[in-house]
Simulated scan of single mutants.
Amino acid sequence: MPISPAFRQALLWLAVALAVWWAVSLLAPVLFPLLLALGLAYVLQPLVAQLARWRVPRWLGAGVAIAGVMLLALALVLIIVPVLAQQWPLLREQIPALLERFNAWLVPHARRLGLDVAVDVEGVRQLLRNLISGHEEQLLAHLLSSLRIGGSVLITVLGNAVLMPVVAYYLLLDWNAMGARVQALIPPAWRGALLSWWRDTDELLGQYLRGQMLVMGLLAVYYAVALWAVGLDLALPIGVFTGLAVFVPYVGFGVGLVLALLAALLQFQDWWGVLAVAAVYGVGQVVESFWLTPRLVGERIGLHPVAVIFALMAFGHLFGFVGVLLALPASAVALVALRRLQALYLRSALFAAPPAAGPVARKE
């Protein structure tokens, strides 16, 4: 039986797709930092293009954009890490005191019910002493031993941290020419449809990323200022972390809320401080859900909350934490493709075919 040209072409494209998938799976550790660099370049491309319209040389605009990102990351590390390093040892004294107060409330109520229940405060104190300040030398020795054994892993991590901004810089320099070369490789018969799909995807992703970054910045300022106003010592690191972590829907806000409530419980030692922190997060969530995100991000993505949760779980299971970060943008790209497939289906002969005629009823 002869094979039709269309079937032969489909088999060829299937073989190419399988070969690409195999190569990507094989080279995943190498391609991962390059993909992150490509994503960074894509986010910074509008800024570099705007600087070029202001007659700033592209090499200078790309350097300014990359340097700005690196300085922002360094500033966040210098703000958050020293504060956490200063507060972490205080947990050894604060948690046992909190548990003793909890015991003072729990034991009388439990005895009225005929129960002998209490928290082992001394055991918790010993555990914290071991975890926080009891094994620094052993941990350091273990770390040095690990670095001697698996030094290549450390070199790889540091190399990727240096490689990513360098690759992103060169991608920004060659962005327009690279796009033209990729466009020239698209078969002419498919070029119009693929370029139209990419324009829609680029518009959707650009709106999402720009709006989401603005939401993150405003929420970081709000949480830091509001937590400082209620007297939380860790207002700056926890507030900035919560604002930036909302990039991951539900997960980021939940982690920030847990950290803030734990810090408030340890610091204030009463429920009023905890309730004040909870109120700050409640107001922030309402403002974000009903005003900031609809106005600044918009409803262009159009993903149902259940679809968002499923995307987070699926991408997190497949790609780990990075998959959680990429779940929503990747879902937006898939949504554009699904909308186009839906439009093709509605225009197809299968959808427009008339219903089959049923059996003709006999006249009596």
Rank of each mutant, 00 (worst) to 15 (best):
W228D: 10
L303D: 02
D120C: 04
L127W: 14
V324Q: 11
A330R: 09
W190N: 09
A184G: 09
L209C: 00
L257A: 12
F32P: 01
W13H: 14
R58P: 06
V48P: 03
L90M: 11
R347I: 06
A65D: 09
A245K: 06
G159N: 02
V255P: 06
F32C: 00
Q45D: 12
I301T: 13
A189M: 04
T201Y: 01
V251F: 15
R125H: 07
L325D: 04
G114K: 02
T201K: 06
V20T: 14
A62S: 15
V119N: 02
R347P: 00
L259I: 05
V167Q: 02
A17S: 13
A75G: 08
P249D: 12
Q342G: 14
I79K: 10
D233M: 08
L47W: 14
V246E: 12
G123M: 09
R295G: 03
L18M: 15
V255Q: 08
Y223R: 07
W88T: 10
G150M: 01
L173S: 02
V20Y: 05
Q207P: 00
L265S: 15
I301W: 04
S146L: 11
W22E: 11
L72T: 11
L140Y: 08
V107F: 00
Q87I: 01
L31D: 06
P294Y: 03
L214M: 15
N160H: 07
A278M: 09
Q183E: 13
L98H: 09
I238H: 04
A220K: 05
L35N: 08
L143V: 08
A361L: 11
R339Q: 11
V240L: 15
L131D: 05
L244H: 05
P5Y: 11
F315E: 03
V157W: 13
V16F: 13
L72Q: 10
Y222G: 00
S146N: 11
A97L: 11
V324C: 13
W291H: 02
G61I: 08
P89K: 05
A85I: 05
Q86V: 12
G192A: 11
E122P: 00
L71A: 15
A279Y: 02
D174I: 05
P57F: 04
